Amino acid sequence: MLIGTGGLLTTTLVGYSSISLAHDAEDEHTKPEKNGHTKHRDKEERREDDEYGGIPGFDREEFELDSDVLSVKDLGFHEGTLKLSVIVETTDEDVLAEELRALVPAFNQAIREADVDEFFEAVEEFKFALYDECDVRRAALYLDVEWLRECLFGDLTTEEFVNRILMILGAVEDDGGPEGNNTD
Rank of each mutant, 00 (worst) to 15 (best):
G53M: 14
G53V: 11
G54A: 08
I55A: 02
F58K: 09
D59W: 10
E62T: 01
F63E: 03
F63H: 02
F63G: 06
L65Q: 14
D66E: 15
D66T: 11
S67C: 13
V69C: 03
V72Q: 04
K73N: 15
D74S: 15
L75G: 13
L75S: 15
G76H: 10
G76T: 12
E79W: 05
E79R: 14
E79K: 07
G80M: 01
T81P: 02
T81N: 07
T81D: 13
K83P: 07
V86T: 12
V88Y: 00
E89L: 08
E89Y: 14
T90A: 03
T91C: 02
T91V: 02
D92E: 14
D92Y: 00
D92S: 01
E93M: 13
D94N: 15
D94G: 12
V95S: 13
V95T: 14
A97I: 09
A97P: 08
E98Y: 11
E98W: 02
E99N: 08
R101G: 14
A102F: 07
A102V: 00
A102Y: 03
V104T: 11
A106F: 00
N108Q: 14
N108T: 14
N108E: 13
I111L: 02
I111T: 06
A114F: 06
A114V: 10
D115W: 06
V116I: 13
V116N: 09
D117A: 07
D117E: 14
E118S: 09
E118G: 03
F119R: 00
F119T: 11
F119P: 00
F120Y: 12
E121T: 11
V123R: 04
E125R: 10
E125K: 06
K127R: 15
K127C: 12
F128A: 00
A129I: 03
L130H: 01
Y131G: 06
D132S: 04
D135G: 02
D135H: 15
